[in-house]
Amino acid sequence: MEQGGVTLPGGQRQTPDCGENHDRLRREALDTIRTLHRKFTAELLSVALFLLVSLAALGDFSFFPSLPPQVRTALGRPPSVNMISALLLVYIFSAIILTLSRMMSGSGSSGGVSHAGYLAGFYGFYHFSGKLPENFWAVFAAGVTILGLESYHLWIYCSEGIERERDLLAHLDSTEQRGR
């Protein structure tokens, strides 16, 4: 944490204007808190998006108009169900490893929206191969696992960050009160 001193090239130290420095630190802390709030909200929105897509998939996308035969012909034959299932296994395995490694490194990055997109893709592939009802719960469980793990990681990361920034704000407040 920055303590307010500026180190000059010659190793001499200069005390800056404390009032300005405190204002800057306060602004930065408030910005960081806002960014962390936004980050976690974006993750929650990704979860909500996934739940909406799952709701549509539960009814086998029946409320969407079916694709015209020409489009289906242009798309070609869907991949086999076994191939989609193998890909889903590889996907959930790598996503879990990636999230756990982010937890280990303490990184705050996340792939919330892209995960919702990948999972919607799996629903789509199963739908076009005609095996969505049998495999719906597999994709849903994969989504709940990946997004649950990511949300938990982000919740811890953001709440710790916010707590740190609030501590800094409290410290700045007490320093200012002592200064008066």
């Binding site: 889903l88 296994l89 395995f93 879990i96 994969a142 709940v144 696992t145 990946i146």
Partner: peptide
Amino acid sequence: TGFVIVCCIL
């Protein structure tokens, strides 16, 4: 839990 459930369903 998630990985085992997905494997079992598939």
